[in-house]
Simulated assay, not measured.
Amino acid sequence: MQMTWLFWALASAGFAAITAILAKLGVADVPADSATLVRTVVILVLVALIAVLGREGFSPGKIPARSYVFLILSGLATGASWLCYFRALQLGDAAKVAPIDKLSVVLVAVFAAVFLGEHLSLPNWMGVGLIALGAGLLAWRG
């Protein structure tokens, strides 16, 4: 099987789903911020090992300053997202929190169009609308 972007995107979705369930179980008896710290340390160690020992290697000097700025900002946004996500999981049902969290898909489409100049077709925008509608229906208390 060729490892395309679709393979990796589906793998990401699968791991994200597992993450939501495991995180919900993990935050049951600890503060959300502490749970986020433990998770982050595990991720840091895992990704550091992959980066250092992997076939691509890690060459910090080869990363342009501009890339560092955006990667650092992305890391800060990720940290904020995780802190909010764990707090939401602590307070709500995973089956309701996860779909609302996935409204990020809708926001990415909007932000990509506005800030990156990406063009989505009418069917693409309809899909974005359906994702938003679906997230709302999943989170609805009906």
Rank of each mutant, 00 (worst) to 15 (best):
L107Q: 05
G92D: 13
L71V: 12
R141F: 04
A11N: 02
A139L: 03
L133F: 06
R66N: 07
P31F: 05
F15W: 04
D93R: 02
F115V: 08
I43N: 11
S104W: 02
L120W: 11
A112V: 06
Q90P: 00
A16Y: 14
K24M: 09
E118T: 01
I18N: 07
V97E: 09
L46S: 08
F115Y: 13
V27W: 08
G129P: 07
Q2F: 01
M3E: 13
F15L: 13
L133K: 01
W8C: 06
G14S: 11
V52F: 15
V27N: 00
A28E: 15
S121Y: 02
A13F: 08
M1I: 10
A65C: 01
L89T: 00
A17N: 06
L130K: 03
G57K: 12
A112C: 10
L37G: 01
G57D: 15
D33V: 04
L138W: 06
R87H: 01
A95M: 05
L122I: 00
L103K: 03
Y68P: 12
S67W: 12
T36M: 10
V45E: 08
T19L: 11
G127M: 05
I43R: 05
L37R: 12
V106L: 01
V45T: 08
V128M: 10
E56S: 11
P123V: 02
A132C: 03
L46Y: 09
M3G: 02
L44S: 06
W82C: 00
G79C: 03
G134I: 00
A112E: 14
A98Y: 11
I50E: 13
L49A: 14
V27F: 07
P64D: 09
S104P: 00
A11M: 15
F7R: 05
G134R: 04
F15M: 12
F70W: 15
T36F: 02
S59P: 02
T36L: 02
A113L: 07
A139R: 05
S104H: 03
I21V: 14
A113K: 09
L73K: 01
L22W: 08
L46W: 11
L6C: 06
Q2P: 03
A113D: 15
A139M: 10
L6N: 13
L46F: 15
I21N: 01
L107R: 03
L71H: 11
G54V: 05
S74Q: 12
V52I: 10
I21Q: 04
Q90T: 01
K24E: 07
I43W: 14
